[in-house]
Amino acid sequence: MTALTEEAQAALDAFTTANGWEARSRLLLQWATRLPDVETRRDEDLVHGCESQVWVTHQRDGNRNQFRAGSDSRILRGLLAVLLARANGLTDEELADLNVHDWLHQLGLERQLSASRGNGLRAVVERMKALSAI
């Protein structure tokens, strides 16, 4: 496992001390404001498979991956923020090795990834891996 970025460590510290759904939800709402949002919402950046619309864009910073994401749902923005906190700044190899389920599990958010959740986080993760592989 690669060392956590500063942002990822901050997410881990915050969420592991949150007890119960209320505290976790409040944290997600707070993290929502930290999400690096997409500059413009273009149709080609829409991720299909989400009940709520999610846009994801990708950039390279040297050999490091950088993602941006947008959504109207605040909770979804919070989830995207903790996801990007972990994924941004990773190399292609690190990203390919990243186990998103484990990451969300560490934060106590693994249920948000389950297939029946309409939030489409799974589709977002797939899109991110596809974008980095191009």
């Binding site: 976790r24 709520s52 109207d72 909770i75 979804l76």
Partner: peptide
């Protein structure tokens, strides 16, 4: 947002 409401109720 309906997704936020749904999340909070689901929890």
């Amino acid at each position: 947002h309906v997704a936020d409401l749904s999340h909070m109720l689901g929890e």
